[in-house]
């Protein structure tokens, strides 16, 4: 286990370093810079050049990268060109908002996928199965940006049941926070539900065919008890793996979901940073999000290793 962990951590460090280089060069490849974004077309060139020089964007790229990565290693991701706030402080404010949304979406996904997947597997090839799988496929196929727009159209503009957009901190107004959470969480969670339902179904199906299930049934255990006590636990392992992989997908989905619902999270921060060429924020955000996804992936793999004795590592 320990050597395995060491290998994984070394690989993680390498991935992060590569990522930082990709992020940096890629961010600076984009034409137009923070000064253009800030001052637009109606400000003369000499004013723009003055600001560019003051901000250090006229220095060689390698020097800028060295400066940035050196500070980043010491936990300093720099200062936003746009808002003049520390990137670490911005992320500390925005990350919990996005993680809250992601968790809620994962909750929505599991709440739909577990019962639907189990029922579909138990009543395999019935109309219930067909229906559940159809809905799962629809969930995977409906793009989140359309779903979000439709949900706003129906629930907010037409029926006026839920607030269309915005974020309310839970501490300020718990009920309002939940009401604002529903539509974005469903938008983001439905696609996940689709992917998970299929995993749960095939996992349960596989376990149902195992000898121990037949033994348990033969011993007279009711089907429900068998599923609850034995099948589900084993069937959830592959589902967990998918959930781990889906974290990166969810964080990506949050980019668009936050844009639609005007959530002040990391996704909107990243899009805005692209549009305003706020290099420090963009670099910091992508690096932290990608690192987060990678670390969660690692944790999921470790959990898998701990829970499933069949998996061995060398």
């Amino acid at each position: 286990m320990i050597p395995y962990l060491q290998t994984r951590l070394a690989a993680l460090a390498l991935v992060l370093l590569l990522m930082s280089m990709i992020v940096f060069s890629f961010v600076h490849l984009i034409p137009g810079d923070p000064v253009e974004a800030m001052l637009g077309v109606e400000v003369d060139a000499s004013t723009k050049q003055g600001l560019r020089h003051a901000l250090g964007f006229d220095r060689p790229l390698a020097a800028q990268y060295a400066l940035w990565i050196g500070r980043a290693l010491r936990g300093d991701l720099g200062t936003s060109v746009r808002t003049n706030q520390r990137v670490t402080a911005i992320l500390a404010e925005k990350l919990p908002i996005t993680l809250g949304l992601t968790l809620a979406a994962a909750g929505v996904g599991l709440a739909i996928a577990l019962p639907a997947g189990v029922v579909a597997a138990v009543r395999r090839d019935s109309l219930v199965d067909l229906g559940a799988m159809g809905i799962a496929l629809a969930g995977v196929s409906i793009p989140s940006f359309w779903l979000g727009v439709m949900l706003i159209l129906l629930f907010s503009l037409h029926w006026r049941l839920l607030p269309a957009i915005g974020y309310v901190p839970f501490a300020r107004d718990p009920l309002g926070a939940l009401r604002h959470l529903v539509l974005p969480a469903v938008t983001l969670g439905l696609g996940l539900a689709g992917a998970l339902t299929r995993m749960v179904r095939s996992g349960v199906l596989e376990e149902l065919g195992q000898d121990y299930v037949r033994t348990a049934r033969a011993k007279g255990l009711r089907a429900g008890a068998v599923i609850a006590r034995h099948v589900l636990r084993n069937a959830l392992l592959p589902t967990l793996t998918v959930l781990g992989v889906q974290v990166s997908v969810l964080l990506g989905g949050a980019v668009i979901t936050e844009q639609i619902f005007a959530w002040p999270g990391v996704g909107q921060l990243a899009v805005q940073a692209v549009l305003s060429r706020d290099y420090p924020v963009l670099q910091g955000t992508i690096l932290v999000v990608a690192a987060l996804a990678t670390v969660i992936q690692l944790l999921v793999d470790l959990a898998y290793a701990l829970m499933d004795p069949r998996v061995r590592y060398t």
Binding site: F26, A270, A290
Partner: peptide, 24 residues
Amino acid sequence: MRVMDAVLAFPAILLAIGLVAALG
């Protein structure tokens, strides 16, 4: 594979936005 992991760790849509911005 580590390079692939690094690319894969970015949210796809964000990577695509950046690439399109860079490519025109």
